[in-house]
Design a protein around this nucleic acid. Structure first.
Lengths: 149, 149
DNA sequence: CAACATTAGACGTTATAACATAAATAAAAA
DNA sequence: TTTTTATTTATGTTATAACGTCTAATGTTG
């Protein structure tokens, strides 16, 4: 549906302004759908991202700073996130012996299993984007890459 | 820059998967820039959206439910948002005489003034999107509208 | 009218983002 | 070596999103 109708707003100042709102709105639409998916696994999107990064490192550990750098939306809150994941038994955390300031975070077997279950269902994205053709998806990816310069 | 390089991740499963991550990442990029803009006016993006809706209604009031419906990302927290805006003197709030369950929220003169100052600078979006041509902006808007079906 | 259902909003809780600051440790400089 | 600086993480604060529950007011039905 056209954005103007969905948010019941008068016209935009120009196409650039509409694009900004469109990005915000489309992101919201996407994350609502994703949240439903994540919720069925009792996990949040942010926590899922952390687990993905940790699986990428496995069997090596990741420091808190590495997690921060790799996060999709950067944030300064990785310590508390890791603690919540530890409470769920999905990661483990120890002080690094070489540099006692650092913390080594590793994904547990239980965490790996959870991701495996979620991988199978990840094809959901294709259903979610059923309204556009593959060629349009590719075009969108190119344009989005280009926006950010 | 290509998304794969920016987030230092291996290839995506397919273009649909990449699109999902690209939307999240581009939204993050955009809201970081917007946050800087809003911060210079001592206001948040969400609060700005509420003020915009209230200015659209002015001089009529808006109920809390109307604000919820019109928000870009729906949420159930409009009461507390309005209270924070009231503390800043940007809105006023009274109980509706006809239906005492409802609350009538209005933007104050001070709120209108703030928006006026911010309008002047809103052209920043054009600078932000300087990397793509107008035709590409229009194409993006069409495709984003189409994604959501 | 009385009993029940619905609606509008407030508020409590948890997870998060963005910010600042503190504390511990390591590295560098004097 | 002692002092200073930088790094890494933890923690406190505020604003928010998403959830649920509660209460007051209004509507509906018998």
């Amino acid at each position: 549906m056209k954005l103007e109708d969905e948010i019941k707003q008068k016209k935009f100042k120009n196409d650039f302004h509409k694009l900004a709102v469109n990005l915000i709105y489309t992101h919201g639409w996407l994350s609502n759908h994703q949240a439903d998916f994540f919720k069925s696994f009792d996990i949040t999107g942010t926590q899922y991202n952390i687990l993905r990064i940790l699986r990428g490192q496995h069997p090596n550990p990741a420091s808190i700073n590495l997690l921060k750098d790799r996060m999709l939306d950067k944030m300064s809150d990785a310590s508390r996130l890791v603690e919540r994941l530890k409470n769920k038994g999905l990661v483990e955390r120890e002080i690094c012996p070489e540099d006692r300031r650092r913390v080594e975070v590793k994904i547990t077997d239980s965490g790996i299993e959870l991701l495996k279950k979620m991988d199978d269902l990840e094809d959901k994205f294709e259903n979610l984007f059923a309204n556009i053709k593959l060629s349009e998806v590719k075009m969108l990816n190119e344009l989005l890459d280009k926006i950010r310069g």
